Amino acid sequence: MEKAIVTLKKGEGRFLKSGGLWIFDNEISQVSGEFNNGDLVTVQDFDGYCMGTGFINELSKIRVRMMSRVKGQEITEEFLKDRLLAAWEYRKKTVDTSSCRIVFGEADFLPGLVIDKFSDVLVVQSLALGIDRMKDVIVRLLKEILLEDGVIIRGVYERSDAKVRTQEGMERIKGFLGEPFDTNVLITENGVKYYVDVEDGQKTGFFLDQKYNRLAIQRICKDAKVLDCFTHTGSFALNAGIGGAKEVLGIDASELGVNQARKNAELNGLEKIVRFQCEDVFELLPRLEESGEKFDVIILDPPAFTKSRNSVKNAIKGYREINLRAMKLIKDGGYLATCSCSHFMTPDLFTETIGQAARNVHKRLRQVEYRTQSPDHPILWAADESYYLKFYIFQVCDEK
């Protein structure tokens, strides 16, 4: 059957023409031909110029997600295998692949798809209808590619339970893709061991995007008293411990996360150095200040305070508050590691917010380094949404 044809309005498709992979509903003039949601369609400009092939979904504001910019390209198994092979070869060049993100959606030209590798387990997250139809084939092809490299995958788990699936008209689902297996997976990263709960952990089970940011804090934590806020399952706190900290306190509001963090501390023989507490960070920081506590290093790794443009103002208040409180608790000449994982909190806005916090408490910041997400979460310059993680390390000095 001939593909339906999506025709753009005159003057629209600027995002697509600059290298992006999305076409929004208000950019389309007409759709000619028959199709079902999730089908592949041909996209053309207002004047009939072919823009490539993508899959369509009338239930989504992102009406078409592009798979290829090549005229007449068929999306075959060979095409998909080439995309997956390119993604894997890139990871082999840029990161430790023992645990890494192998597919990062649009940044790997496989829109709506995330695949994480935790040791010998794959976790798949499908967020768009068109790619969801290809999911089983993609998993089979990726396992074949990895096997050719001597990497045997013992199990695959699906974590397509993100809320964004409902915007595509899909149910939120999770479960085994193939034979069941133990979903508590042991991984090692930066010399730190973790148990990753791929069934019930946040997102796909573990935040791989902070891999080298966690490594970066090890050297500043030697012989230090460290506070790790929003510790989740203890990853930054444990890197501080491995780095030679004399004492570490990790804080998180999730009892589940804190319990997992304690198990991870025991796994690394750090339970006497790295402690965890279940508390609300916003409530704890003022109490620590009142009690006169001081730390050599404070790490702030909060969840995204905003997931839309509409809530950015409230997010700014949240980021300013925690950074301000942290700076007051840091000894003169101590260090602050602070980050934001919200795409809508732009680098300029995040930088400005931290600067405001420093001015409010009369602190001077010396930037040690600025980092983003690990290279296995590549930033595609034509896809703004792929750039989301901002990570600073500062030395915090009193005004003198």
Rank of each mutant, 00 (worst) to 15 (best):
K3W: 02
A4R: 08
V6K: 03
I28H: 01
Q30T: 04
Q30Y: 03
V31R: 03
V41W: 05
Q44C: 10
Q44A: 11
F46D: 10
D47H: 04
N57H: 06
N57Q: 11
S60L: 05
K71E: 15
E74D: 15
D82G: 11
R83M: 11
L84M: 10
L85M: 13
C100R: 10
G105S: 13
F109H: 13
V121D: 00
V123E: 04
S126G: 09
R133Q: 14
R133Y: 07
L146W: 01
E148G: 06
D149S: 13
D149T: 06
G150W: 06
G150K: 10
I153H: 02
E158T: 06
V164A: 12
R165T: 09
T166K: 15
G169R: 11
K174T: 01
D182Q: 13
D182N: 15
V192C: 14
G201A: 12
G205H: 03
L208D: 00
Q210D: 05
R214C: 07
R214M: 06
L215A: 15
I217W: 00
F236S: 07
N239T: 02
G244N: 07
K246I: 14
V248F: 08
E255F: 10
N264R: 03
I273Q: 09
V281T: 15
L284Q: 05
P286F: 08
R287W: 04
G292C: 14
E293R: 15
P302K: 06
A304E: 08
F305L: 13
R309G: 03
N310R: 13
Y319N: 05
L324R: 14
L329N: 10
G333V: 06
G334R: 00
S340L: 06
M345H: 00
T351P: 00
Q356K: 15
A358Y: 01
K363E: 02
L365R: 00
Q367E: 13
Q373K: 10
Q373W: 01
Q395G: 00
V396C: 04
C397Q: 02
D398I: 00
E399A: 09
K400T: 00
K400L: 07
K400M: 02
K400H: 02
